[in-house]
Design a protein around this nucleic acid. Structure first.
Lengths: 139, 139
DNA sequence: CAGAATCCATACAGATACTG
DNA sequence: CAGTATCTGTATGGATTCTG
């Protein structure tokens, strides 16, 4: 069958390693990564840059519903975490290119795993929600 | 080498499938999944329940720094999305058991991939941050 | 072009008190 | 025991205006 026994094992090891019942939640590596990719735009940004490097304005056009504030902020966070590289070309007017670092590229693989899971199981989530909301209405 | 060319390919397909430049961001499967696992407690909850089913109070003791409000809310969201199953035993006083559904268990694998990535690359993220913050201070 | 700065609404999350 | 209800502070994120 598809019991993910080994995955579960690995996770439990991590749980223990992180001392889940301790106070080190904010410094937990898993939490830090989730805080980054869990925000509204980081994932989309990483996936976009996985295609090729982009400039600020290009990213803006590529993801029309991001505000310029959030674009700046997301890019800065990703840069701070070493996931993307920011290169300023001293032209006039200035142009800035963003590209994935090797570290950023290495994140594409776990991210891809997640993306494929989402694609595959989306329908089940949807129907679970309808069922849950339906029962809630009945009550 | 370790160029994740295939992962990148898959991601690009997903990007196109999601019509990234369209308006369907809020209904994007990937986004919905990230909204769930990206919140503060869901991942910890799923990982905890991957070990074995737990009751409300047990979870509370297992994760001491979660507030009871967030525990309730996180569990309800996970239940709504079909990732965990809530079973009420009509005892006195009542006891409620939470356990992963098969759907929830299937999420452990992509989650494990992410967790392992975080573990492996945590050091590089940390040093990238120090470097970034150091340069920011200098300016 | 690529941003910084400011203002503002809402979402998220903790503390506390109460209930079947 | 397993929650709900309320109140409140903080973080998130959008709109708008301004700058090298």
């Amino acid at each position: 069958m598809k019991r993910p026994a080994n995955a579960s094992r690995g996770i439990q090891d991590v749980l223990r390693a992180q001392n889940i019942s301790g106070q080190s939640l904010s410094e937990c590596p898993v939490r830090q990564v989730l805080d980054q990719i869990g925000d509204k735009w980081s994932t989309l940004m990483l996936l976009s840059l996985s295609e090729k490097p982009y400039r600020f304005g290009e990213l803006r056009r590529l993801i029309p519903d991001i505000s310029q504030r959030m674009l700046t902020q997301t890019l800065r966070d990703l840069q701070r975490n070493g996931l993307i590289l920011r290169t300023v070309f001293p032209t006039q007017p200035p142009s800035v290119e963003y590209r994935l670092t090797p570290l950023g590229e290495s994140l594409l693989e776990p991210l891809g795993t997640l993306v494929r899971w989402a694609e595959t199981h989306y329908g089940r989530i949807q129907s679970a929600r309808r069922h849950f909301d339906g029962k809630a209405d009945a009550a």
